[in-house]
Each structure stands twice: as C-alpha cells, then as structure tokens.
Design a protein around this nucleic acid. Structure first.
Lengths: 176, 176
DNA sequence: CCGCACATGTAAGACGTTACATGATTGT
DNA sequence: ACAATCATGTAACGTCTTACATGTGCGG
C-alpha cells in the first residue's frame, strides 16, 4: 500500500477517472491540461504508471496496435486519489531564473540584462496570447468551470508579469 | 570544469560578491533575498559549497568560533558566476498543487474545496502583507533597485492571485 | 552552568531531466 | 517501400527533501 502518492502520480489517476488511457495519451493530456502549472515528462509518466500498476492503483489492459497499453483506474486507485485530495495541499513553488538574474542585476552588463528581459517579456506575451485564444475558443464538449478557473489564473498571472516588465525602472531594464 | 554551475550554486557565488560568508549565513541570506522565487535548503547549500570549494570557485577561511567557516569568492568563482549569467536563462517553473486540486475540483467535495481555497487565500494575503511591509520598511543601507524590482514582482503576483481567488465562481469556490 | 540557538555535516531516498534504444504502423 | 510519427521503455545522472548526528558557545 502506498501512503505516499505524489502529485504527479495523483494527477494521472485524476485523468484516468475519465476512462482508460495509455502512457502516451496521459503525457499529452497532462501537458495540455496541467502542463502550465505542473510540469512533467514522459519518463516520469511511464515510471509512475509502472509503479502504480504494481501497487494495484491501475491495471494495464490488452496491448493494442503499436504496443498501446491502456491503463484503467481500479477501485484502489480511486481511493488513493481521494486520499491524496484529503492530504496537505502544499504551497506553490516558483523557481524563476529570471528573477535571480534581476536580483543579481548589479553584476550583469546592461545590454545583457536588457536582452534577457526582452526575451522573457516576449515569452510571456506569447503565453498570454495563447491563453486568450483558449478563452475565445474553448474546447468542444461541455464547459468545465474548473479548467476555466485554472485558465483564468494563467491569464491573470501573465498580465501581472507583463505589467511588471512594463513598470521596470530603466536602471533595471538595462536599456534606455 | 566549466558550464556545470547550477542556479543554486550560482546564487551563492552572487552573494559572496558582497564579502565572505559562512554556510549558515548563506542559508539565511538566500532564504531572505531569493527564497520567494528560488527555494533552497540547508543541505543543498553545504553540498554546493563543498563542491565549489573543491572546484576552486571559493575558498574556506580559518575556522572561527562554533566551527564557523567563512567562504571567500576566488577569481575563478567570479569568472564562473559571470559565465553563468551569460548562459541560458530558462523559463520560470511554477508547480501549484492548489491549481491541481482546482483542476480536479469535480472530484473534490465542495466543503473540502472551500477549505483548501480559504487556506491558500489566507496564505497569499499574509505574503502580500509581508511584501507591503517590506515596501514601507526597506532594509538599512543604500537602496537596491534590483531587489526592489523582485519585490515588485512579488507584490504584483500576490495581488493577481488574490484577485483570482475573489473572482472564482461559486461552483468552484465550493461554498454558497 | 545549563539550555537554546548556532553551525556543520552526512545519508538515503524521492523526484526530475536528458538522452538514447527499439520497434510498429500509418500514410503516401 | 519508405519516412514520419506513434509508443514504450531504460539508463544515467542531477537535484531536492527529509531526517538525523554531532558538537559549540552565548545568554540568562
């Protein structure tokens, strides 16, 4: 019995509530639906799937074409997921190399700092555009207020970040 | 021997530009100055210090009272830090268990969801209050525009998060 | 003179990243 | 028949977390 289900594994169980999925499907699904606030890799997914299958939380089905192996949620898996939801919801973790560079800006040549900032501002602009597109073009099927809430978080976050970029004083911004 | 400096180690070098510091001092300094956007633990700090001393980027000084061992930046360390600043500044990483729970809100009992959200809203309120206090009570010494910029990021981030909480629809918020 | 905070360090395991290896099948 | 994509998996390493072990000196 695993009393120690991590958030990544738990998320996979979450997706499996909607029906059997293969590792490949889960990688794609996770990256689409939670990738913006919970990064994971293909390697991790297969590892967790193997471990969870061994622990009886999921069951591998018949191997299909191209070695597709769909996993099905078991009753134990449902319980483990519910238990995970009851556990501590830890604080979010932000690790921002950009802010690190800004903090040590005193040691960064002005043009380099300007370049780094411009690059990142652009990345956030693009991400905001992507989110705004998702807003106007919601996926087919019944609307999901929970997914909408996480999208709203992303929108507000990206807007706040862009506002921050635009409010940076010229000393920090590096260029004039 | 080069190009394998991680952001955590680089940050320690960054702080050592201001003068010799012990591992203990570095843990405290790092948590104070970058802890809000770059988490690190005591264990990591001692490990990186040992590794960097071996690599000649820093030098351990005389052991003082209570086994205090101040580390001094070497010229090689200065170079390594400068090189790190020239390398790729990767995108920020956000890992938010809260957003995970919200995304899977469909599977969370309404009162539990309400509880989780209230708890986190409170945490962010406190963090905002802390940042606002830092704004009005800047640390002694000459003002640092770079530190001010990272603080501004925190302020904007926390305000955006609180706005998000307050805009959550009741279906998601859990309570009625 | 005693307790608490200071201060360093190690060990072990969990988690994450990158790269590579292997093969099947679909579409052209 | 061939390339591109699908799909799974492993190996190796790097990073992070948690817990523990050990001792010191300052303040009351």
């Amino acid at each position: 019995m695993t009393r120690t289900l991590n958030a990544t594994a738990a998320s996979l169980l979450g997706f499996l509530h909607e029906g059997p999925l293969t590792g490949w499907d889960l990688v794609a699904t996770a990256q689409q639906r939670i990738g913006d606030f919970w990064s994971l890799t293909q390697s991790q997914v297969y590892r967790e799937l193997t471990a969870m299958a061994e622990a009886g939380l999921i069951e591998a089905g018949e191997t299909g074409p191209r070695a597709r192996r769909p996993y099905t949620l078991t009753e134990a898996g449902r319980v483990a997921f519910a238990e995970w939801l009851e556990g501590d919801v830890t604080e979010e973790l932000i690790r921002s190399p950009l802010l690190l560079v800004v903090m040590f800006g005193r040691h960064v040549p002005a043009d380099r700092l300007a370049e780094v900032i411009a690059t990142h501002r652009h990345l956030h602009e693009q991400r905001l555009a992507l989110y705004e597109k998702q807003l106007t073009e919601p996926p087919a099927g019944e609307p999901d207020p929970y997914a909408a809430a996480t999208l709203d978080f992303g929108l507000r976050y990206e807007r706040a970040v862009l506002d921050w970029f635009d409010a940076l004083p010229e000393v920090v911004r590096g260029a004039s």
